[in-house]
Amino acid sequence: MCPHEPPCPPADAADREAARTIAAHPEQGWSLLCNGVVLFEDTGELLPNGTIIAPHRPTDLAVNAA
């Protein structure tokens, strides 16, 4: 359980990336969040239940849609 006040969002919440970082390894490109989510520098995620969230960088969107 999260010891922070207010508590961090759970791993299944839409705002799960807002949880506090409890272990950072920038040299390896990942961080562990308080809710058990492993967040990768490419914005991909690994949830505690094994679900993979594909990278979702804002730069993946088309700049000029016209």
Rank of each mutant, 00 (worst) to 15 (best):
N49E: 13
D12S: 11
P48Q: 09
L33S: 03
N35Q: 09
I53D: 02
D60I: 02
A65L: 13
T21I: 15
A24N: 13
P55D: 06
L47N: 05
H4A: 15
R20K: 13
T43Y: 08
D12E: 12
D60Q: 15
V63I: 13
W30D: 01
L46N: 04
P9L: 09
P58H: 08
R57D: 15
F40V: 01
T51I: 10
E27N: 10
P48W: 08
V63C: 06
E41F: 09
L32A: 10
P48E: 08
H25E: 10
R16A: 11
H25F: 12
I52F: 14
P7M: 05
A18Y: 09
L61T: 07
L32N: 04
I53V: 15
R57I: 02
D12T: 11
A11N: 08
N35Y: 05
P26V: 04
H56P: 00
P48N: 10
I22H: 02
L47P: 04
L33Q: 03
L39P: 00
P55M: 07
C8P: 01
P10K: 12
A19P: 02
V37C: 04
I53L: 14
F40I: 01
L46M: 15
D42P: 05
T59V: 10
H4E: 12
C8K: 00
R57Y: 07
L39K: 13
C2R: 01
G29E: 01
G29S: 04
T51V: 14
P10Y: 02
E27Y: 00
P7I: 04
G44F: 01
R16D: 07
N64S: 12
A18R: 15
A11C: 11
I53A: 05
A13G: 03
A23R: 15
H25I: 00
A24I: 03
R16S: 06
P58D: 08
L33C: 03
T51M: 12
C2L: 02
P58Y: 02
A13V: 06
D60M: 14
A13T: 03
P6W: 05
V37W: 01
C2G: 10
